[in-house]
Design a protein around this nucleic acid. Structure first.
Lengths: 109, 109
DNA sequence: ACGAAGTACCTTGACAGTCGTGGTAACATG
DNA sequence: CATGTTACCACGACTGTCAAGGTACTTCGT
């Protein structure tokens, strides 16, 4: 009797999942993430910087990612993000939830 | 160059669209709407009353639905909701937007 | 040499949809 | 006559999004 309802949060807030997906393919820094998402959606979706930062902070607070400063000796410092084991689990859960929500929404809309 | 980005609001807030869809098949009252949505999703989604009421109020303020009191002479008064022409347009727009968002999310998740 | 544009980080405050909590009232059932 | 169900509604908290603003460095054109 556990969790056969869609947690309605996932009808909002897919940002975390998008970011986790990217980090599954290796560490990335913030600016890179937003550019990648824009590219991967062929500019049909734009992840706003402030949205991304609040998502990254949330992910870090929840232990889904860790971060560290890159060692760029010259020029702009970059903060890199790395997905944790927990983060991978979260990604798969979220992805499954999305598939579920999609089915239900298709039925309801 | 207009509107090739997903308005990210539709990643949240599908409630309005669900309700509009139901009203396309005839006037309904509040309680009925929430029960129908629960039934149509085989209890996998439950539309909370307070969410529904705020959605209905929003829909009415925006001219997507109108409402009137039923003439139940005995017992519980019921407020019925009827979709407007504008509401039908809104429904089709939202539905199209959902299809679009779905494609993009599938690509990004 | 200078200014603009781009990279790269971050904070703050407002806004909007969701939902828990609580309240009213009528009717049905045991 | 107490409990449950139908039926309405208001209020306030929470959370994800995003516009606006800030800092600092690099690159490129003129």
């Amino acid at each position: 009797m556990v969790d056969n309802k869609v947690s309605s949060d996932l009808l909002r807030g897919h940002t975390d999942t998008m970011i986790l997906k990217l980090l599954m393919n290796g560490d990335k820094y913030g600016y890179e993430i937003s550019k990648l998402i824009q590219a991967n959606s062929k500019s049909e979706y734009e992840l706003k910087e402030s949205t991304m930062f609040s998502s990254l902070k949330r992910l870090e607070n929840d232990g889904n990612v860790t971060s560290y400063w890159g060692d760029e000796t010259q020029g702009g410092r970059r903060r890199y993000y790395r997905i944790t084991e927990k983060g991978k689990g979260t990604y798969f859960d979220n992805k499954k939830n999305w598939e579920h929500a999609k089915r239900i929404l298709d039925q309801l809309l």
